[in-house]
Structure formats: structure tokens, C-alpha cells
Design a protein around this nucleic acid. Structure first.
Lengths: 186, 186
DNA sequence: TTTACTATGCCGACCAGACGGTAAAGTAAT
DNA sequence: ATTACTTTACCGTCTGGTCGGCATAGTAAA
């Protein structure tokens, strides 16, 4: 059922997330849907919770597959965010769905997102962590609203830069600048 | 009337943006509202257009008040974005209002936002411009959804860093790192 | 000046449809 | 018979949009 709800949001936007639509999509009657989720807010809450859990899990998995160096968690966050952008991710839809209706439901999710950063940035200097975090978040948002001014090639370049900055710090950018200058001088 | 619409969105969220509410707020009847905006989409479009124009103007003004050095435009963008966060800005509401209903209306606005970046980043190395741009956008989004994990002090620090990066490049970050280390060593 | 006519701008009652939610009844397994 | 679950049918409300009317002002003929 939650799958159906996410599908509906993905296809028709948050405004089309109606109980009837979800029920139809899930192959049950509206009454059946209301039995499992007594109210629409309950459904939204469940969607959001599953989304957060999914995100947490993906980050943990990715983190485990990376070498244990300082900045690993932050790097995993970057990679996880941009990977989600590639597939028509469920996250996007459900998030939009929630905040346009009941803003109070964001509470628990906000807690997660707030706590998330603290863990990400624990082993990276503050300014660098903040920069990488915000830029990633910005890239994600741009793509979500389809307002990104970057070409796919540029996006890939940015992602590489962010991933390197998460671990290597400023060296990554300096390297690139050097390389660009060398290239320009050629 | 557009003022009323923005006020409604700001107070009650995008979902409360109904024709009746706007009409009441504007002190006219619904018929009167419909006379000026024959359809709700027309109203949304007008709101969005005014918003874009407002943004463009604010950036231009701020740009003019800054010394003409490379990165001026980008720096003005940063300052303008974070200034908008301070007051309960109209932008936030109306933007949300539009994208949750008719996504097609974003077209013209998307054009503006796309073109905007090209001008901002014209006189700044690509990676640095992208980094500043995305981080600013990320900061703006975080604040908009009230999901920012930063304290006001941290936010101010980040803003200073971004503003410096817009013009001075990596020197800004390096400086700060140096200062931090010196401080820690004290 | 008066009168008749027209255009503009706005009003407010109304409509058809969609929405979230409820209730009674049914079904199948335990 | 009880329980878990589903269906069908319905209700009250709200929404975007329509429609006929009304006041005002402008115009031009008398």
C-alpha cells in the first residue's frame, strides 16, 4: 500500500495523493485502505517513516562499504544523495507530499535530519563539512525541482569534487584548480 | 491582490491558498478576484512572475552596491539569498504554492533560474562557483523547510565563508582553517 | 440639462465535482 | 460465533469556476 502511495505521488505530484487514488492503485477499496490507515495523516506519517528508515539504511550500507577514514560518513552521504537523484526516487515525492499539507508531521523527520548532520560532520573540520553538506543538499534540491543549471557532465564533476572534499579536504579543490590551469596553459 | 495571496500563503501554508481566502483577505468578492485573474493558474503565474521580478531587482540593487571585482555577482547572490531568509520572506510561500499544484507553471521561472546561474558564475572558476552556488541554495532550502542543523552563530560563519569564497576563492577557506588552528593552539 | 444607451468593474449566489471520512453489511478463516 | 479484513454506499464539506445582476461612469443624442 505504501508502495502504491509512493507511486501515485511520483506520477501525479503531491496534489494527486488522494485516498481514492492510492486505494485504486493498491488494488483495494477505499474502505480497505482506511482500515489500515485510519486517517490520511496516518498514511503520510507511515510513508515518511519508511522513507527515513530507507534513507538511514542506505547510508549505513554505503558507509560500511567505504574504507574507514575520516570523513567516511560524510562521503557516504554525498554518494547516497546523488545516487538517489539518478533513479526516479521515491523520496522526492513523499517529501513534497508531506510538507504541502500537514506541516506538523515533519517533526519526527526533522529530528532525524538534524541529528544526521551531527554524525556526518563529527570527523571533518566544521567549515568543510558544512560546505559539502550544504552543497550536496543544494544539488539534491535543484534536481528535485528540475531547476539544475548544470549539464550531466558538470554535475558529475561536481559530485567528484564533493566526494573528494569529504575526505581530502581542500586538497581536492586545489588539485583541480592546478589541473585546470595546467590544461589552460597547454 | 497579489499581496493578499502572498499573505495567505505565508500564514496558512500553500494548501490554504484558495480563491475565497485570497478574495476575503484582499477585501474583494470572489467574483471580483476572478475578474482580474480568470483562473487560479493565472493568479499563481502572476505571483510567480512578480516573485521572480522582485528577486531579479533585489540582486541587481545589491550588485550595484558592491565593488566591481570578479565574483561580485555571485557574492551578491549569496548575500541576497541569506538576507531573504531573515525576514519571513514572501518567496518561500509562493514557490511552494506553485510547485505543489501545477508543475507546468514552473517553466518560465525555471528559465530564469537557469539563466541566472550562467551570469553569476561567468567570472568565477567553475568548481568554486558551483560550490558556492549549491551551498547557498542548500542553506536556503534548509532554512525554508526548517531543517537546518546549524546554530545561528554557525550559520553566520558559513555565510561569511561563502561570501568570501565568492570573491577570494580558496584563500578564504584556507585563512579560516589557519585561524582555527592558531586558536586551538593557543 | 436631461435622457437613453453602453462598457467597465465588481458582487454574491450558485454549481458540479472531488475530497476525507463514516457506517453498515458481507466474507472467509479460525 | 468470533475475529480480521474488505466492500459498497453514502455524507458533509470545500474548491475552482460560472452566471446573472448591479452600480458607476462615459457618451451622445435631444
Amino acid at each position: 500500500m505504501l508502495d502504491a502511495a509512493q507511486a501515485v505521488v511520483l506520477e501525479g505530484g503531491a496534489s494527486r495523493l488522494t485516498l481514492d487514488a492510492v486505494a485504486r492503485r493498491a488494488g483495494v477499496s477505499k474502505g480497505g485502505l482506511m482500515y489500515n490507515f485510519p486517517t490520511k495523516d496516518a498514511l503520510l506519517k507511515a510513508m515518511l517513516e519508511r522513507l527515513v528508515e530507507h534513507n538511514r539504511q542506505a547510508h549505513a550500507d554505503l558507509c560500511a562499504s567505504l574504507p574507514d577514514r575520516p570523513g567516511r560518513s560524510l562521503r557516504a552521504y554525498v554518494m547516497n544523495s546523488v545516487r538517489a537523484l539518478d533513479l526516479d526516487d521515491r523520496v522526492s515525492g513523499a517529501l513534497l507530499a508531506v510538507l504541502n499539507s500537514n506541516p506538523g508531521l515533519l517533526g519526527p523527520a526533522a529530528e532525524y535530519f538534524n541529528g544526521r548532520y551531527a554524525k556526518l560532520a563529527a570527523d571533518v573540520p566544521f567549515e568543510r563539512a558544512a560546505l559539502v553538506y550544504l552543497a550536496t543538499e543544494g544539488l539534491w534540491a535543484q534536481e528535485l525541482f528540475q531547476l539544475s543549471p548544470f549539464t550531466p557532465r558538470q554535475r558529475a564533476q561536481i559530485v567528484r569534487m564533493l566526494a573528494r572534499m569529504a575526505e581530502d579536504g581542500l586538497g581536492a579543490v586545489k588539485e583541480t584548480v592546478k589541473r585546470r590551469k595546467a590544461k589552460a596553459g597547454r
